[in-house]
Amino acid sequence: MVADVDFWLTQFLNGLQLSMLLFLLSIGLTIIFGLMHFVNLAHGALYMVGAYAGVSAAAALGNFWAALLIAPIAVMLVGIFLYAAIIRHMRRAGPMNQVLVTFGLIFVIVDLVRIVWGDIALGMAQPAILSGPAEFLGVVYPAYRLFIIAVGLIVMAALSLVLSRTQIGAMVRAGVENDAMAACLGINVERLFFAVFCVGCALAGLAGAIAAPVFSATPSMATDILIPTLIVVVIGGLGSLRGAIAGSLIVGFIQTFGAVVMPEFASVLVYVLLAAVLIVKPAGLLPARS
């Protein structure tokens, strides 16, 4: 194998980049679950909508940065609609019904996307400033991927700050720990959930728009991304920011280095890991509730 520092540094960046994308997706899913015990399988479909919204916005405005702003807002609006029409009424319907309803939503959203944008995968141009390779720590690495890593780290830092330092953050943490108690303390848990849900949707949309220039937008991305995201959430432990961070890093790096070191097992490694974690720690590595 290659014993070259540049090689491993590049692979490290590859792993980090994948982890950051997974993080943007899983953080919304995990906090929504942690706060309201709501299993939203349609989260991956929102990611797909984000990618398509980004592609269309970029094509219409000719500006990548505008697309990056519009896509999360568009997905948030979709999320608000879903919340008002369906999810609000499903809060106490039990996990099985939530699974069924959000599964149905995947079907609906994917087919609507097919009707609007067609079956053929659509590409999105990278902004000129980020296209092509850049120098980083002495290795040549695609500038756009460095940008993904940066966005992931910024969101991570911002969420950590909000959750640990602000009043809203404290309310969210209280809600995750014990929602009934939080409600007794005068926190409007429902409104809190709505706000968190919107942020989660926006982050899924952001992830979609950021991913589109690298992966292109396809109708199959809704289900393709669902399982890896669920794995991240479950490995990390439901409901915690630290869990989502740990889960994304573990899955991102296992996938990247699995592909390098033992490619023939690359597709099964992450499942082996998932099974192993659940057998040893049935509630994930860093669950929000002890």
Binding site: V2, F7, Q11, G15, R145, D224, T256, F257, A259, P263
Partner: peptide, 21 residues
């Protein structure tokens, strides 16, 4: 020569880095 997991590979970064090496 490398074969990437079918239908599950979106990120070709690790493979491209290995190929280049």
């Amino acid at each position: 020569s490398e074969y990437t997991p079918f239908g599950k590979t979106q990120d070709f970064g690790p493979y491209l880095t290995t190929a280049k090496a």
